[in-house]
Structure formats: C-alpha cells, structure tokens
Design a protein around this nucleic acid. Structure first.
Length: 376
RNA sequence: GGGGGUGCUCCGGAGAUGGCGAGCCGGGCCAGACUGUAAAUCUGGUGCUUCACUGCUGAGUAGGUUCGAAUCCUACCACCCCCA
C-alpha cells in the first residue's frame, strides 16, 4: 500500500491524497461503506460501483469468522473471491464488538472471550488469532485488535484499557509481520489510537503509535456517545501527532457534519453505519438536508428524492413514492434510500477533495455544514 | 314473513353479567432515536380540553327504569345465522 499526499488546505489540516492498493486506488478523503457480513446491506455491488462510486468497503472479522466461517472463506480465496467485490476491502478486527457486545464477552490479558450472538457458543479472540483470521479474510487493510472503550469511561479504566490495547497492538504487529498473505497480494495493518476523552491518554497513545511507523493509522474509541466537541478535540489532538505522510482513519464517524469537521482536522478515511442503517429506517441525507421520508409532509410531494444526488434512482423517484414504499415496508424503499445516502456520502467526500485541491475547502465546508445538518 | 344473535376507540381481537372503562392486546397511523452493524431495529404518542393536575364527552339510534346504565326494558336501524 502506498499513500501520496497531494495537497493540504492552507486554512485547516484538510488533506487530499491517494492510497494505492493491490485492488486499486482510493482517493482521499474517503468514506467507506460498511459491509459487516460481506455485504453492504440493501445494495448490490453493481450499484455500489456505478451509482455510489464506492472505492473501498468494510467487512467485520467477528461476523465473518462466525459466518460463513474461515473454511468457506479460505476455499473462496478470501472475501474478495467470496463476495465478488474486486476493489479494496478493509476489515475491522472485532474491537468494536468488545464494546457493542460488552454484556456477552470477557476481557483478559490473553484476549477476549465472546459468546456468539448467533448461537451462544464461546469463541476466544486473541491479537494473534485476529491477525490470522484477517489473513484468511484477505482484506487489503486490516485493523489491530483493540478495546473500544465506552463513554463515559473513568480515567483509571481508560488508562488500563489503553495499556492493554497497546500490549495487544505489539502482539498484533509481531504476528502480522511474521506471517504472509494467503492470496498473492499484500495486506497492511493499521494500529488504533485509544484513550477515551482524556487528552493525556490520547497524546500518549498517538505518540506510541506514530513511533511504530506503520503504513496508516487509525483513531478509535470516538463516536460512542461523547459530545461532538470532545470528538473533534480528541481528533485534532491526535492528528497533530500522527505522521502527515500516512493516511489517518477515524473509525465509526459519522454524520455528514462530523465528517466535514474531521476532514478539516486532518482525517483521510471514514466509515460509519449511519448512512446505511438510517436509510433502512427512513432517514435520508440529501444535498438539501436531512429528510425523514416516513413523515406525512411528503405524502404528496412528487419532487425528486434528491435532484442533485448522483444516484439515478434519487433523481428518478419522488419523495411521495419513496414514502409509500416505506409505509408498505417494501424492500425497494430500503434499496433506494440506501443508494441515496451512500451516494450522498461519497459525493460529499469527493466534493471535499475537489475543494481541498482547489484551495477553497474551509469556506465551502463552513457553508456545507449548515446545509447537511438541517432537518427538512 | 318467523325465530335467534351481535352492535363501544381508525381496524381486528380479548374482556366487560347494574357501580373504578377514556380502558387491555395486536395492527394501522403520527412522531422520535440510531455513529469501527446482535438493528428492514428500538422508543413514545394515538376521544376533546389543560404545560400539568383536572375537567368534559362517548358505548348503533331514540326513549325509559334506577341513587347509578355499555350492562335492564321498549321501539327503531344495521349486520350475521337458522326456518319459510
């Protein structure tokens, strides 16, 4: 994997760059649709490429390990071979499930024992094991096994958790660097900065990780319920320490506004379930603001879902029709809404990139933030 | 034409046999939540009035009995079943 920094905004830390992987290029800043179980819910890969213009998608180690399982993935030639997506893939390590499945797991020095949410069976994830699983999945970018701490989180716990995450990181690196990719193309490992909302811990973690000199670095443990100001403050603190010549990935963020503000603070890569999950729940992100398509006010509004959105279905179909599909619980409603939200997210980061390259990012961002957060 | 049964909330169901029924369950509808996906999920509201307490109205329709009626009586209306 190679990263080229093309331009940095004069009035902020916003950067335009290019990541090159064995499965193709990624223009940054980028939003990566989440495809936990090997599918970006409700969209076909044809649409993901043509209408949404996705350049990289996510998968999840924990979910793919449980189903379809490693044997199937190995036989398929990895996740690319299994699901037919031939552009870059990034896999999360299961660190987020340490947080989201907190009531069905136990953390020890060695690793984390999960009880499967599917059948209750017990599975132990160690840093070494998670590296091995991600070798089998074969993602281009794989993530270190960490603990994503909850919010709020007291200082003592955050500190102990951070030290554990750092020890796990060293074990991840040792395993990763001593093993080979399985499918003939290289993989790269991103470490993850933790430290909850404590500046002291974030600085310590960022310095620790910057010194490792990996190909890219991630910021985790944010967007777990803390105020947006804390998220921005921690992001700004960390991007001030992480190397400028490596991509920075802010995990799990966020709303369109969060993304614009964090691009301004020097983040290159984002992922979030909001555009896909909210789409299935009837919440649309559009170039004119946020729409709850189930609301009665759209009952007879025959204007396009989003006339300026790159997704053809959003220009072709009306709000009234999409509302009708949702009220009838029709699958097509979720498909069209997901196309809209992902196409909008990708449009947003591509537009940001153009503004950075043109040197006009900050003014554009300040105006756009007001629009994308507005409820219609 | 004769006999029997049933009628209340937007809909369906349960329950209600003279006294806490503006009230249960489900659906629908109206809103809200969702941030490295246990999520096509979850939460709230859904007679009128008040910020709230409260108050008011309502049981197919119209009367009646009673301290008190969705409940009993009379007539009528609608629907269902049986007989002709």
């Amino acid at each position: 994997m190679k990263f080229s920094l093309l331009h940095t905004d004069p009035a902020s830390r916003a950067r335009a760059g290019l990541i090159e992987t064995a499965h193709g290029p990624i223009e940054t800043p980028i939003f990566m649709p989440v495809g936990t179980a090997g599918t970006v819910k409700a969209v076909h890969f044809t649409e993901l490429e043509a209408d949404i213009r996705a350049q990289i998608i996510l998968g999840n180690t924990y979910h793919l390990y449980l189903r379809p399982g490693l044997d199937v993935l190995r036989q398929a030639g990895g996740l690319h071979g299994f699901n037919g997506w031939h552009k870059p893939i990034l896999t999360d390590s299961g660190g987020y499930q340490v947080y989201s499945l907190a009531h069905r797991r136990k953390i020890k020095e060695e690793g984390v024992t999960f009880q499967s949410h599917i059948d209750g069976s017990r599975h132990t994830f160690t840093p070494e094991g998670v590296m091995d699983i991600q070798r089998v999945i074969g993602a281009d970018i794989i993530m270190a096994f960490d603990e994503c701490t909850p919010y709020p989180c007291d200082f003592d716990y955050a500190q102990k958790s951070l030290d554990l995450t750092h020890r796990w990181l060293q074990r991840c690196i040792a395993r990763f660097d001593s093993t080979e990719p399985l499918y003939g193309y290289p993989q790269t490992l991103f470490p993850i900065v933790q430290g909850s909302t404590y500046p002291e811990l974030r600085v310590k973690s960022a310095e620790f990780i910057a010194a490792l000199g990996r190909d890219g670095n991630a910021i985790g443990g944010l967007s777990v319920g803390e105020p947006a100001e804390d998220m921005y403050a921690m992001t700004e603190l960390v991007t001030g320490i992480l190397p400028t010549d490596k991509p920075r990935y802010l995990m799990g963020v966020g709303t369109p506004e969060n993304i614009l503000e964090c691009i301004a603070r020097g983040v290159d890569m984002f992922d979030c379930v909001l555009p896909t999950r909210n789409a299935r729940h009837g919440l649309l992100y559009t170039t004119e603001g946020i729409i709850n398509i189930r609301n009665q006010k759209w009952q007879s509004d025959f204007s396009p879902i989003d006339a300026a959105c790159p997704a053809p279905t959003s220009r072709k179909h009306s709000k009234a029709y999409l509302r009708h599909l949702f009220l009838n619980n029709e699958i097509l409603g979720m498909q069209i809404a997901t196309l809209q939200n992902l196409a909008f997210y990708l449009w947003l980061v591509q537009e940001a990139r153009q503004q950075i390259l043109a040197g006009t990012f900050t003014d554009w961002k300040n105006g756009m933030v007001k629009i994308v957060g507005k409820k219609c």
